[in-house]
Design a protein around this nucleic acid. Sequence first.
DNA 1: GTACTGATACTCT
DNA 2: GAGTATCAGTACT
Length: 201
Amino acid sequence: MHTTLDNLQVLNESFYERDTSLVAKELLGKILIRRTEEQDLGGFIVETEAYYGDTDPASHAFRGKTPRSKIMFGRAGIAYVYFCYGMYNLLNAVTEKQGMPGAVLIRALEPVYGIEIMKKRRKTEALRKLTNGPGKLTISLGIDLGDNGKNLTSGTGDLYIAKANFQIKYKKIGHSQRVGIRNGKEKFLRYFFEKCEFVSL
DNA sequence: GTACTGATACTCT
DNA sequence: GAGTATCAGTACT
């Protein structure tokens, strides 16, 4: 496994400023990096979900702008982090043009960088359990509400998504219903690599 | 292997 | 006050 951060190409705003499902699909295989003073942490994105606006009852933007959801109406390529079930922070990337709500939930990673630190934070030695779920990956990477609103398109920031300069081994993209929602289950907006042990389900 | 449950605190009504 | 884009643990089969 490669372990250098050389020649990563950071995704720019125009990548995110498109249809949310398309962005969700294309984020698979990209690399999410969290920069810390100690070490860089991160891995391949292997599972995502798309959330729209007023057509999508599962979306936080379904009922329009609220203090929490207004960020989904803003600029693309911004991190939307929110707190769920009293315990977990979930990481999204804002999509669509300004004024149009949308976001992609990052649900799972294949760990690549900073694995030892992630093991400590997750209190487990099992590689598969480090980032195979949206709540787990934010614990491993140390993402919390303080990261809400950060710009993912700046390679100089401490949170960004980049294109890898090497080939990822997964070939086939599967899609399914989204996980954990009450409404909007009929939409197949979850995307993941098939036969990948690091997806959440 | 699957099924159910409790923990927990923030957001919006 | 109700609902929640989750997870780990326990109890089953």
